[in-house]
């Protein structure tokens, strides 16, 4: 495929590198079987494609999953570090944490961290950032441990260039901080950053983030910001079930 640089080129904002099996990828994107569409080619794209198709195969069997893992392992020798190799590294991490019959989350987490440390800035490595955030923070209830991991995660997140991956990681951090107490002071900066990029959020998430900015601001005594947050929510989602409550809270917080 001349695959060298495909994902890197994407990161640079360019497109158009050849992908030999576009139709097969389209089928996979639409949830259709596509293993045969990658043909018998031993090319690196075809091997990754067959691995992804094996991950989708139904019924889900240990044999198919092992085949997927073997194909991916085969694409990631250290001497070839093209985009298919980085994609395979990412998928292998996912294989261990989500796809294996007996998931090994610790191994998945180790691989996500290694990928992010080695290749942050590459789209497939950046995609590991929200996954690592989920692994580290989503279920964490120990404030000290949360802070320790947060200190380690922050510099990694700084190196993430993909805006969508950065947003998703921030959302994980913000929601986890709420479950930690709630710790509004820790959560609010992340929600604010997300609200500034609200157009990039799905409508349901956008609504949740806007409401939460107001709620966290109110909890921290930032009354003007809270009122404006709730007003913005009611303005942008006038037919949402929370709109009436947002309007009531906006009026109430300013009258305190």
């Amino acid at each position: 495929m001349g695959s060298m640089g495909v994902m890197g080129v994407l990161a640079a904002g360019e497109t158009g590198q050849a992908v030999e099996h576009a139709e097969a990828w389209r089928k996979l994107a639409a949830g259709e079987a596509a293993a045969a569409d990658f043909g018998r080619s031993e090319g690196r794209e075809a091997r990754v494609g067959r691995a992804v198709a094996a991950l989708a195969a139904q019924p889900r069997t240990a044999a198919a999953l092992e085949r997927a893992r073997a194909l991916l392992e085969d694409v990631v020798p250290e001497e070839i570090q093209d985009d298919w190799a980085v994609m395979a590294e990412y998928l292998l991490a996912r294989w261990h944490e989500a796809h294996a019959i007996e998931p090994d989350r610790a191994e998945g987490e180790r691989r996500l961290l290694a990928l992010l440390e080695a290749r942050a800035g590459h789209p497939w490595a950046d995609a590991a950032a929200p996954k690592l955030a989920i692994a580290w923070f989503a279920a964490e209830r120990d404030a000290a441990e949360f802070a320790r991991k947060e200190g380690r995660f922050a510099p990694l997140l700084e190196r993430v260039r993909d805006a969508a991956a950065r947003r998703d990681a921030r959302l994980v951090l913000a929601d986890a901080a709420l479950r930690l107490g709630p710790d509004h002071a820790r959560a609010l900066p992340h929600y604010r950053a997300l609200a500034e990029e609200a157009e990039a959020l799905r409508p349901s998430l956008r609504a949740r983030v806007l409401f939460q900015v107001a709620e966290s601001a109110a909890a921290l005594g930032l009354r003007e910001e809270a009122a404006e947050g709730w007003r913005r929510f009611a303005r942008e989602f006038p037919t949402d079930a929370r709109a009436a409550e947002a309007r009531r809270r906006a009026a109430e917080v300013l009258s305190r």
């Binding site: 495909v6 994902m7 080129v9 994407l10 497109t15 158009g16 590198q17 992908v19 576009a22 990828w25 389209r26 089928k27 996979l28 994107a29 639409a30 949830g31 992804v52 198709a53 991950l55 989708a56 994609m87 998928l91 996912r94 989500a98 796809h99 789209p123 497939w124 995609a127």
Partner: peptide, 23 residues
């Protein structure tokens, strides 16, 4: 968990197609 695994496949394929300017 099943939905997340299904998504992995669609997202992986979608990212490859995005390099072609699709979706």
């Amino acid at each position: 968990a099943e939905g997340v695994r299904r998504d992995d496949v669609a997202i992986a394929a979608g990212r490859v197609l995005a390099t072609l300017g699709e979706g």
